[in-house]
Design a protein around this nucleic acid. Structure first.
Lengths: 243, 243
DNA sequence: CGGGTTATTGACGTCCCTCAACAATGGTGG
DNA sequence: CCACCATTGTTGAGGGACGTCAATAACCCG
């Protein structure tokens, strides 16, 4: 109960400082605490439901046909997300203990959006944030080397987490990282040690990463071939047709 | 000009038969023809702009830091998509000759959404289709084997293209497929021949694929190890906390 | 203390990226 | 009409990277 009060205080402070999109719905918001691995419910209402991550972390995942799990999205503090209740075979669950979420009624949000143009715009912005997040993930997953994927993941995490961006406290396990990046857990571990040996990061404990060299993180470990210089061959200027 | 008339006729017929979301905006829609590799403009208006694919194909892509291109989304006929005009380093362009798009003013759409609740809902549905598409792509890219990726890609394409789902006429080049799946072009080619040799597909020309065995397409080529039976170990029932 | 989760490292085999060469296709200009 | 060229598509050789299996350590919690 103390934790819940703390989370709510944090939320109120955030509301006072930042002018976040759902502020107009604050009076109707509900603060809910979730345990680790607890699924975020969809049922309580016929309409969709908006959530705002106050603390902790949430993942959206799906099970592939071969049984492997793929994490489709990772929601961190200050992130909004939406949970559908139809034709969506993905599950949403908390991955940190005592994850605090602010929950908003989708119906009420839509009603307010109907009356308030500015709020409707903010609502759309929030939906676009979802798209932006998953596009970033797609770019990260599309990396060739595992070191590249893990490095990009760490950089993306550092830019999303609050505080100084040179130290990242991982809110997820190695398994979560593996399922997020679509690689094996062992490969994630090896990438961590590899990045550490190359001087890109240092590990203070299992979950605390200090970023030393950002360029090494976003570069490929191009120690022989394996990287194309086949680039730029598609980047012709696309001669404009003049009428 | 004849092609444009044909596309417009097709569009009118679609409007009459199906009751698609943007029907209310039809009077303000503009039909535009795009050449191959021509970028879909963002500028003509301060607000965002909605598009509907009548014929052809459109891709959204970004250039990664190492110079490789990653296709972030693939829009096919009957798909809607939205083009932002801010902090979005991805480019949207037609990839088929004479791609016909219906273009809608984002401002007008929002105005109509403000007055019409049902239309506002449809507008949101369309935005969610974008999310659904990219999540499917993420699942496909997350596949382990290249054969698996190409197979899933073909199945997804078959379900999205009109007509009988056993024959797929590829609207994209091998290079596009490679950049969509984040693998090399050569690997895509080898997967095509591999799938053909295994009896999953047959190739009638370079671009026409006949799907013979759907199960072979979504399965892994599990001829030794390389596939985990490590599944299900995370799928514990998540004991509900009872108050 | 015991058991489960999490994390790490090694060995081995295979998949895929790279480089290379070449065929097939399509459009353009002489 | 045909040569020429760019794009597109295909196949082979070689090597590095990653998945799998295995073993073990570190950590948390009851």
């Amino acid at each position: 109960m103390k934790t819940k009060t703390h989370a709510l205080d944090y939320y109120r402070r955030m509301l006072a400082e930042q002018d976040h999109a759902m502020k107009r719905l604050d009076e109707h918001a509900r603060i809910i605490l979730f345990a680790r691995s607890q699924e975020i419910p969809v049922n309580p209402e016929p309409a969709n439901r908006w959530y705002y991550v106050i603390s902790g972390a949430v993942r959206r995942s799906a099970i592939r046909s071969d049984g492997r799990r793929q994490i489709l999205d990772l929601m961190l503090p200050t992130d909004f997300f939406l949970v559908f209740n139809r034709h969506d075979d993905s599950t949403v669950e908390a991955i940190a203990e005592d994850t605090a979420l602010a929950s908003y009624s989708g119906q009420r949000a839509e009603q307010l959006a109907q009356r308030d143009t500015g709020f409707a715009r903010e609502l759309r912005e929030v939906a676009f944030q979802d798209l932006s997040r998953i596009r970033d993930q797609l770019l990260i997953i599309g990396g060739v080397t595992a070191d590249e994927k893990v490095g990009s993941f760490l950089l993306a995490l550092a830019s999303r987490l609050p505080g100084g961006t040179d130290q990242v406290v991982l809110p997820v396990t190695r398994y979560d990282i593996a399922e997020y990046l679509a690689v094996s857990v062992e490969t994630v571990c090896r990438s961590f040690t590899s990045l550490q040996q190359r001087g890109a990061i240092t590990l203070a404990g299992k979950r605390t990463v200090n970023i030393i060299n950002r360029e090494l993180l976003e570069e490929r470990n191009d120690h022989d071939g394996y990287t194309a210089t086949r680039r730029q061959q598609f980047c012709q200027p696309l001669a404009q047709t003049e009428s």
